[in-house]
Design a protein around this nucleic acid. Structure first.
Lengths: 391, 391
DNA sequence: TTGAATAATTTCAGCAAGCGAATTAAAAAA
DNA sequence: TTTTTTAATTCGCTTGCTGAAATTATTCAA
């Protein structure tokens, strides 16, 4: 954050940093932070604070620079099964307001969906008194397949429509860039940003929840073939496994996603029906509670899920050879019940040399992680566009 | 190759190209090509040649530039099951000489192996009267797992040694850069270089032969997590499938690699035994001939192989979402017998939206493709190093 | 044969980004 | 108050470009 640190991390010289930062400050994109924390020194964290001087040292103190939160705002929308979550953040990425709208998403056609999303975005702008020209970009995280080259939405379990350009009507309504991404990609970006070590090399984030998604981040950036998303959830574990909502059979998702677990549990257990086959968070919590109470059939169900998770991780490691694998998403709440089956299967399913050279992290993440990651992604795209236009 | 074309493809201005090329020509790295073909015009291929002028047009003709073949030489070594193949190429990548050494590779320890490889390289240098200072780099393609970060060889079916740094002794013997890569990566680079369309986006090359390997090329460059290689051959197709030589069970390789097919065929057919379980090319040809002659058990075997191939492609597409998939390697000689089973299974195993957006090519490739690709890879590394040192 | 016409390359002057050295600024320590 | 230490800026210079114009090598047509 201080200029010295920027020079070190970018490898540029002081004069260069000085010139760049002063130009950006003239654009009101950057600003100097308050003098309070400003007197803390950059490399203070790892030294003892016992000098009683509150982290101060000799010499001119560094001036902290921050993104000017007032430079503009970003709206991120997460479109999931029966849920539209919206968040507005300032230019530094801090959330200003958010909303959740529950409805049966599969009942919507493309026009109705876009109308709803536009209304949600407008509500966010109104709630934070954001003038239109302060809106810099909109990010949409979608549960399903997105073609990153064209931005088109190809297929989603949450929607009955396929192969439509959802971004276009929204772009036209607000006149700003609309960034589309798979929701697992958004989660991946959020988690990678939280731990600097994960931003080095290739990090694969497996999101387990309503579906199974994967986001791939290379050196902190989400860039890839046809999108940073991977459809590992629809890799098959056998040619005649359980029915998946994609229409095919034996998908990893059909063994591991919460809708699959709930559906299978209902075949032998008395549980309330799920709305459009999508159990609520409360229903999944109930399922876990019953399993922990000691139902052997449920324990078996979670063991099978553990096997499916291990197969997913094994395939990821074998095909992608990532440096880091993150297991994330609400499905990990039940990881304790999957663990032994997962570990046992993983050993059998990956070459030991590969397993040894991959670090696996478990990070059960909240729902807000999606919109947080989407804000980051959108900010990056907006910044890139801004750079290109001012040059 | 002509300067005009360079300017167009790099986006740099003419003066810039002029300055750079003249500097490189002063270094004797580039040279102007012969006047014969030089008078052909760059964008002539797609216009009719009916003007009877042998492709000439008005205006000053472009001067073709080529890498100066005499600038230096590259040796590429391919280390496979029972075979060490060596090739020496000039700076433009044309092969000058090559050799094949057949021996039981699994009987060698690290020292003996390096000694052999060094002897092979020296033989190549002698055969082409290459002075030591003209040797710019050595590339080694290895069948097995290579850690691209460290260059260490981790595991190979062709060798009994594991986790050794094979590059170091060779680097010390010749004092030049030694580039290690998975052999499938080398094949991928060679095939991608042959078709410009494949150099755009993400191309996954599945090599089917002694083993199953995969090379991943992004925008023409082989860069990745822990190497551009993927161990998709060791993804499991079921928890209790046939024994694989990696020690685990049910690997795709154990259904599809030639050693697996030959081994399984020998359980019901009278075939000569294979040396260290590795059938020769002639033995595999015999197997294919018998199958084509109409043995129903062999037909069934190849149908199973087709299923395994489909699973490999399905997994690749689902996890990687590549723009292009290439099926390559000697195993594809039998693709006609696998085709119907392959196509049928592929439809079931990949989401149709993904399958539709992926182009699949079949390119049965020769053995020399490995060393050719390895020469390219090594040249690229050598050039990068050269750039850094002269700047 | 000779002079357009055409296209590739080079020359030239100028600009912009970045660097090293020296300078100025702000704070703690002596 | 002076010295020390570190942050940030200013200054002059190099480098790598670019655009405009000049130069060169050809073909085409008179």
């Amino acid at each position: 954050m201080p200029r010295v640190e920027l020079a070190r991390s970018t490898g540029l010289s002081f004069p260069a940093i000085s010139a760049i930062t002063s130009k950006l400050m003239a654009e009101e994109l950057l600003c100097e932070a308050e003098t309070e924390a400003a007197t803390l020194w950059p490399d203070d964290a790892d030294e003892e604070d016992a000098d009683g001087l509150n982290g101060r040292r000799r010499g001119r103190p560094a001036v902290l620079l921050t993104l000017n939160p007032e430079f503009g705002r970003i709206v991120a929308v997460s479109l999931r099964m029966n849920l539209i979550e919206t968040l507005i953040a300032d230019y530094s990425g801090s959330a200003l307001a958010q909303s959740r709208l529950e409805l049966t998403t599969r009942a919507l056609d493309a026009a109705a969906l876009c109308e709803l999303v536009i209304a949600q975005i407008e509500a966010m702008l109104d709630a934070t008194a954001t003038p239109r020209h302060r809106l810099l970009g909109i990010g949409m995280a979608l549960q399903g397949i997105v073609d990153a080259d064209t931005g088109r939405h190809l297929w989603s379990p949450a929607l009955s429509i396929t192969d439509v350009d959802l971004a276009k009507p929204i772009r036209e309504a607000f006149g700003v860039e609309v960034v589309m991404a798979n929701d697992a990609v958004a989660v991946a970006l959020s988690l990678v940003a939280a731990e600097p070590a994960l931003a080095q090399g290739l990090t694969a984030t497996l999101m387990v929840g309503h579906g199974i998604g994967m986001g791939i981040v290379v050196d902190g950036e989400a860039r890839w073939g046809a999108g940073a998303g991977s459809e590992i959830g629809h890799v098959k574990l056998g040619s005649n496994g359980p029915q998946c909502r994609c229409g095919q059979r034996g998908c990893i998702e059909a063994h591991l996603a919460d809708y699959a677990l709930y559906r299978d549990a209902r075949t032998f257990l008395d549980l309330p029906p799920a709305v459009s086959q999508q159990p609520s968070e409360a229903q999944m919590a109930l399922l876990r509670a019953r399993a922990r109470a000691g139902d052997p059939r449920l324990e078996q169900l979670f063991r099978q899920a553990g096997h499916a998770l291990a197969e997913a991780v094994a395939t990821t490691i074998s095909v992608l050879r990532p440096h880091h694998v993150i297991l994330a998403g609400p499905g990990l709440e039940a990881f304790d019940m999957m663990r032994s089956a997962y570990e046992e299967r993983l050993e059998q399913a990956v070459l030991p040399w590969l397993l040894k050279s991959t670090a696996i992290y478990v990070r059960p993440s909240e729902s807000a992680t999606i919109v947080d990651g989407m804000v980051r992604r959108t900010l990056r795209v907006v910044d890139r566009n801004h750079m290109e236009t001012t040059e």
